[in-house]
Amino acid sequence: MKAWYLVYCKPRNEARAQQNLSMQQLETYLPMYRRQVKSSGGEISVAESPLFPNYLFLYFDPTVTSVRSIHATRGVARIVGCREDMTPLDDSLVRAIRRRELQLEKLPEEVALSPGDKVKFCDGPFTDLEAVFLEKDGLKRCMVLFEFMGQQKQLDVAQSSIVRICA
């Protein structure tokens, strides 16, 4: 019976494994997220990265498609949990990840923050503490610098947990 299985790929070979498995007429799913990257010239661009590095989901029937042929596919290291009796993933898990990935694509852009902007935590254990925005760090996360117990700390936080302080 067809089901979803988790495939562990060789480092940075998720796309290669996905392409080679697709050429075998197998359905794959590689969840991606967008993040901002700064080039050496200072230009900011958007790059897509795997949500789960080195992993992708594969929908197949082990009684029809040989597990050995999947393990021999370029880019694939192994099927996770592949022993005598393979355990498939729950379909609802893959559907939930797909749904969440679509929601992330549709989310409105946050108010743009610039390095050096003063911000305040509006959520979490540091609520009401002030900090300085440093840079975006991937999708919906950023780096801030704040003083805590007499020391300056750099912290990776969700961008939604801070707000700009109007000076």
Rank of each mutant, 00 (worst) to 15 (best):
Y5M: 10
V7L: 08
Y8F: 15
K10E: 09
K10G: 07
R12E: 13
E14Q: 11
A15H: 09
R16H: 04
Q25H: 14
E27Q: 10
T28W: 05
T28H: 10
M32C: 06
M32I: 08
M32N: 09
V37L: 08
V37W: 07
K38Y: 11
S45P: 01
A47K: 14
E48F: 03
Y55P: 02
Y59L: 04
F60K: 00
D61I: 01
P62E: 11
T63C: 12
R68I: 10
S69A: 12
S69D: 12
H71A: 12
A72D: 13
V76M: 10
C82V: 08
P88W: 04
L93A: 06
R95D: 15
I97S: 10
L102Q: 15
L102D: 14
E105A: 13
P108G: 06
A112Y: 05
L113Y: 01
P115C: 01
G116N: 02
F121P: 00
F121D: 00
T127E: 02
T127R: 02
V132H: 01
E135Q: 12
E135P: 00
K136W: 03
K140Y: 02
C142L: 10
C142P: 09
V144H: 07
L145S: 14
L145H: 13
L145P: 01
F148P: 02
V157W: 06
V157H: 03
